[in-house]
Amino acid sequence: MERADYERLRWRCIRRALLELDITLTRFLDGGEFEKLTDEERLAFVELADMEDYDLWDLLTGKAEIDDPRLAHMVALIRKS
């Protein structure tokens, strides 16, 4: 991923509407977890990061589930971080 693309993604993760997501996503990115992802996993992460805050937070807290196995896998990785 190009530097500018990563930094854009990072900005969209570290400035959310909900504090809970700010903390969770900042921890994932700045903790180096994103660097370990495959290209396909990175795409899934970007897709999750594009979601509305409450929808994403419900997935991350297990209040909601998602059918797409790529996204479900990424949710599990973020929860573990």
Partner: peptide, 12 residues
């Protein structure tokens, strides 16, 4: 806006 409007903190 620094973020997309519906990402503003009013959401919380």
């Amino acid at each position: 806006s620094k973020v997309f409007p519906t990402r503003s903190h009013t959401v919380a």
